[in-house]
Structure formats: structure tokens, C-alpha cells
């Protein structure tokens, strides 16, 4: 759905986005993580053809980004929720959606039914004729999401949809995103909320001007420390450590308090062997776990390395 190669944006001397290459598949929710100023918004604006790119290429929804002939067709197929919702505050919820449907040249009957369906899903139908300026932030955000959906886009760009919302409103919006994911819409989600990324994204990319890594939240978590099995024992000893090494081969095994910390390659194959070796050597296992780093740890580590590297 999105294929970008070496996408780069420079503002004068400042390189805001540097050689970003990524792929987003149809039907997936792709989280784009990064600290303030990482270039998330700039990337989205480039991918949606709102601003020009300095270098690189991208194909989005079958349209070549930056090609004049593809520009309108690209914008027909995507929906963008910008950082600032930018609703017409003096107009009603209905009028806001209607205007955007008309700009997308929708058939009036289809538009009317889409607006009703969306406003009902967002719990805003009762307020359809109320001026937007009286809405709460969460309601405005939901209305803005409805606006990005009014023309049934195949691809959605959501730029920090839960930023500046109170926890309840953020939850409301997150549930909306999850519902869209169930409809198998492709979503490109900018966020710096890691918890949110973990909960709603199939894959995430971490950006700090350059793209630092891409993978599913699980892959990223597993990738940080390599894999490690932790065995809590009644008493951990060097004898038990050696017994484990004899069984699974020369691996780093560390004794730490009442625990053995063992680096493993294939936990599903090796963990039963580890347990058997310990039991055979007379050890008593209280707990055997495979802890992983949180996405937050991965994020912080990469972002700091990225800062040190640049």
C-alpha cells in the first residue's frame, strides 16, 4: 500500500527526514514512532503529496508521489487526520462532513448515508446539527476522524490522534482505531505513545530523522537483548550452571542471586533441555521465564543511540 525508498526532506540546511525506506502492507496498522521533531508529520505530508520531497521516491495506493498526473488520484484514495484537526468551528458536525464529501465529489445519496453511519458510530449523531465550537476535544477528534473516513479511503494517515486528549477521550479514539483495524483498513499511525503503538499496531517503525528500525512490537522487544531464559531456583550454583552448559552447549550462563540467566537461540527447543539438565543435577526449579524488553526500552535505547550517532 505504501512503498517508500530513500524518502528525504530538507528544509534549507535542516534535514527533517533522511533516506527513509519502508513498506506498509494492505490492511495493516503501521505505527510510526519518534520523539518530537523526528520527522513523522513531514513524512506523512510527503507520502500524501501535501508537500514536495527533496529526494527519494514513494508509491502510495498505486500512485507515484510527486507526479503531477497522480496527485488528485492519490488524494482521492487517502484520508488524512492532521496534527491539528482544523474543523470549521462555526459549522455543524454534519456540515463539516458534508463539505468534505462534496470536495471528494461523492454522490449526494451515498454521502448522506455515509455521514449518518459515521456520526452514529462516533456517537455524534444526536449532535449533528450542533456547532462544532461547543464540542469537547475528544468529540472534535472523533469528528475529524469521521471526516477522514467520509469518502471511504483505502488508506488512512492519522497524525497523533490521541495527543492532547484526556485518558478517557484517548481511550475513545483508540477504540475507534481498533474498530477501523477490524474493518481491515490500512492505517499509518503517527504517535509517540508507546503503549498505544503496542496495543493497536501490527508493526511499528521508529524514526529519528532516519528510520532506526521496523518490526512487530514483539519482534522489537525480543530483538533488544537477544533472547534470554531466566530460571529461579531454591539455590543457584555454578554446578548447576555447568550442568546447563554441558547439556545445551557453550553458552553464556550467569549466576545472579537465586537465578540462572541463560542466553538461548531457540527457546522452544532449549528450555525443556535446560529444565531437564537442572533437575538431573539436583536443582529445584521455582520458575522458568523468558522476559522481554518492553517496547519502551527498545524505543528509548534506539532513540538515544540515534541521537549519539547523529
Amino acid at each position: 500500500m505504501i512503498h517508500a525508498e530513500n524518502l528525504t526532506k530538507r528544509f534549507g540546511d535542516l534535514t527533517a527526514v533522511d533516506h527513509v525506506s519502508l513498506d506498509v502492507r494492505e490492511g495493516e496498522v503501521f505505527g510510526f514512532l519518534g520523539p518530537n521533531g523526528a520527522g513523522k508529520t513531514t513524512t506523512v505530508r510527503m507520502l500524501s503529496g501535501l508537500i514536495s520531497k527533496s529526494a527519494g521516491s514513494a508509491v502510495v495506493a498505486g500512485c507515484e508521489v510527486g507526479k503531477e498526473a497522480d496527485a488528485l488520484r492519490l488524494r482521492e484514495q487517502i484520508g488524512i487526520l492532521p496534527e491539528n484537526v482544523g474543523l470549521y468551528e462555526g459549522s455543524s458536525a454534519y456540515e463539516n462532513l458534508e463539505y468534505f464529501g462534496q470536495l471528494h465529489r461523492m454522490d449526494p445519496t451515498a454521502l448522506r448515508s455515509n455521514i449518518e453511519r459515521l456520526l452514529r458510530t462516533m456517537d455524534l449523531w444526536e449532535k449533528k446539527d450542533v456547532r462544532v465550537e461547543t464540542f469537547s476535544k475528544g468529540m472534535k477528534q472523533k469528528l475529524a476522524i469521521a471526516r477522514t473516513l467520509v469518502h471511504d479511503p483505502v488508506l488512512l494517515f492519522l497524525d497523533e490522534p490521541t495527543a492532547n486528549l484526556d485518558p478517557e477521550a484517548a481511550k475513545m479514539v483508540r477504540e475507534t482505531i481498533l474498530a477501523l483495524r477490524r474493518e481491515r483498513r490500512t492505517i499509518f499511525l503517527n504517535t509517540h505513545n508507546l503503549d498505544e503503538a503496542q496495543r493497536v499496531c501490527d508493526r511499528v517503525g521508529i524514526l529519528r530523522t532516519r528510520l532506526l528500525t521496523v518490526g512487530s512490537p514483539r519482534e522489537l522487544e525480543a530483538g533488544l537483548h537477544g533472547r534470554r531464559t531466566v530460571v529461579r531456583l531454591e539455590r543457584a550454583t555454578e554446578t548447576l550452571a555447568r550442568a546447563v552448559q554441558d547439556r545445551i552447549g557453550p553458552r553464556p550462563v550467569e549466576v545472579s542471586g537465586d537465578r540462572l540467566l541463560i542466553d538461548v537461540e531457540d527457546p522452544d527447543r532449549e528450555n525443556p533441555e535446560i529444565a531437564a539438565a537442572i533437575v538431573a543435577a539436583g536443582g529445584r526449579i521455582l520458575e522458568l521465564t523468558q522476559p522481554s524488553a518492553s517496547l519502551e526500552e527498545v524505543y528509548l535505547k534506539l532513540v538515544h543511540e540515534g541521537a549519539a550517532g547523529s
Binding site: S48, L72, R75, E76, P82, G86, F100, L103, A144
Partner: peptide, 14 residues
């Protein structure tokens, strides 16, 4: 001021 130009520019309008 209301930042509504960006969504407007995101529609298929030249």
C-alpha cells in the same frame, strides 16, 4: 487560524 487549510488541501482539489 483554525488550521483548516491542511485538511482542505488534502482533498482532491487543486
Amino acid at each position: 487560524v483554525s488550521k483548516s487549510l491542511e485538511p482542505l488541501l488534502a482533498t482532491p482539489t487543486t
